[in-house]
Design a protein around this nucleic acid. Structure first.
Lengths: 149, 149
DNA sequence: CTACGTGCAAACAGTTTGCAGTGCG
DNA sequence: CGCACTGCAAACTGTTTGCACGTAG
């Protein structure tokens, strides 16, 4: 979760402004740690405090913040993009997606480093980023299935 | 890559028919091993042999074949879904996506098994499937950058 | 004859873009 | 003043659906 001053510097470097709309979008993510918000969800949340913000503005803010590496765009294959703060420790930050209830949890793991090193040695492919998603059934869904069945 | 007889059995179980269109869609994947085709690409390829097949039919065939676990739907965050044969050894089958030229390569690795076991022990989350994507720069793009720069 | 399958066109959802107006730097 | 930024509506892309017709079982 970036400092506002960092955000401000990054914006200035590209002579971009920290408008109220953009600041609000950032605050929404600060207020919803660990969530993976879609553009529509962000729009909905921002609207509570800034009634007439346009959806396009939200999209443009999300794009800008993603370009500045303040946000990270991810997809869980449900047809819409989602966003979260671009954690520096992204390389150790993965997702557990429950196929039944849709809940997305996170976990940290550094076991990919040796693999990426080996891939570079063997194929010359330099890994810059990665994405590991584990799909399955979460604890509470498994319990419910047992109880009900 | 499934036997046609397997496909036929799976279709019969759901009283679905192996129409020429569906058979062609399957053949397209057989003829393009290792590729990750979008619906539009499949449509384009099928059209060469069956001129007036509709795009909707392709979508419906892809959905059906995915439901039957003959195909697997994947996404590389480029806004469109892609498909490939659902390899049984999927659990060892991951993707290297070049951020410069977009080429998608594959690699196999079984190092996730112990991790998944640990996640089940620690959190009760039962992993059924997973998706590992490594984003970076492929060998030839890295070489071109060096040559040109 | 019924249920499945098809092509076509229209509908849809998420996202992007063109444009006229606003206001910071 | 100039350029970044905005809201709105229209455009666009990938995908799904409704419908009338065809055909396999």
């Amino acid at each position: 979760m970036p400092q506002l001053s960092t955000v401000f510097r990054k914006l200035e470097e590209g002579s971009k402004r920290l408008t109220p709309q953009r600041e609000l979008v950032i605050r929404i993510f600060a207020d919803h740690p660990g969530e993976h918000l879609s553009a529509e969800e962000v729009h909905h949340l921002v609207k509570k405090e800034f009634a007439d913000i346009g959806l396009a503005t939200v999209y443009r803010a999300l794009e800008l913040l993603t370009d500045l590496n303040i946000l990270q765009r991810i997809s869980f294959n449900d047809g819409k993009a989602r966003y979260e703060f671009n954690q520096e420790e992204l390389h150790r930050h993965h997702h557990l997606v429950c196929l039944r209830c849709g809940k997305v949890d996170e976990f940290n793991e550094d076991l990919l480093d040796p693999l990426e090193e080996r891939i570079f040695q063997q194929r010359g492919f330099k890994v810059l980023d990665h994405e590991l998603k584990l799909y399955g059934i979460c604890k509470s869904c498994a319990k419910n299935a047992r109880t009900r069945g």
